[in-house]
């Protein structure tokens, strides 16, 4: 099988405490993998380790992305290489206009990849086109990044960034948290519009509900820092009925 990302025996700790205790995952281009699991099982740690957050220390194992050693790259290099993390809690950054941020991010990635920067008119057209699809209003784009945005607006803004940056590998970290059913539909549609045979996704969620909208190819159950079970999309439905009790943690 052709692999986009291969995670082997990945161990990681935060503040001296081991959270990931040997994760193995192989994700092929175009596949959507869901990671489910109880609170504290290591779901968010996995997404942060893949995105390159400083205070997460990898102690053992490897992650190869498009044949490169992902763990050696800085967060911005990973982003330029095609990794995108949709944050569980997108940051509010006062004083930084959303448009300035988007343009800086797009052009920084293009520059790192050795491509020409987008001109302002081309950038504006691109943003207008994508934001219309996600129902992101002009008024939101004029505000400082995420400042005064509702939970749903912040998540839509995340998916807008994903659409603009066109990553090869998307990590959705509990994107459903804090969303009502209408916002969940809009966000899921935005994500589904980005599915194609080259782009892979890792969808991290506590609840099965999100997977009704973003239907995965594979489901993995994470417990106590390890993948304890893998299966098809039906595994999510089974978990919805039985809960996480048998995986040794708090019930969902």
């Amino acid at each position: 099988m052709k692999s986009l990302m291969k995670i082997e025996n990945l161990h990681a700790e935060v503040g001296g405490k081991e959270i990931l205790k040997g994760i193995n995952l192989n994700i092929a281009p175009g596949q959507v993998h869901a990671i489910m699991g109880p609170n504290g099982s290591g779901k968010s740690t996995l997404s942060n380790v893949l995105a390159g957050r400083d205070d997460y220390v990898v102690t053992k194992g490897s992650v190869s992305f498009m044949g490169e050693n992902l763990l050696e790259m800085a967060p911005e290099e990973r982003a330029a290489a095609g990794i995108f993390l949709a944050f569980q809690y997108p940051l509010e950054i006062p004083g930084v206009a959303t448009m300035t941020f988007l343009k800086t991010a797009i052009n920084a990635q293009r520059k790192t990849r050795g491509e020409d920067e987008l001109s302002t008119p081309a950038f504006m057209r691109f943003v207008r086109e994508k934001s219309a699809l996600l129902g992101v209003k002009d008024e939101m784009l004029k505000r400082p990044l995420n400042v005064g945005f509702s939970g749903g607006e912040k998540k839509r803004n995340e998916i807008l960034q994903m659409a603009l940056l066109e990553p090869a590998f998307c990590i959705l970290d509990e994107t459903d948290s804090g969303l009502d059913i209408d916002a969940l539909k809009v966000v899921s549609e935005g994500v589904n519009a980005l599915r194609d045979k080259e782009r892979s996704m890792l969808v991290i969620t506590h609840y099965q509900r999100l997977l009704d909208y973003i239907v995965p190819d594979f489901v993995h159950v994470l417990s106590n820092g390890r993948v304890v079970r893998s299966g098809g999309k039906d595994l999510a439905l089974e978990l919805e009925k039985s809960g996480y009790a048998e995986y040794g943690a708090d019930a969902a």
């Binding site: 330029a80 990635q109 790192t112």
Partner: peptide, 10 residues
């Protein structure tokens, strides 16, 4: 980290 994760160098 948020900005770097979007590809903006430190």
């Amino acid at each position: 980290f948020f900005l770097r994760a979007r590809g903006i160098p430190e």
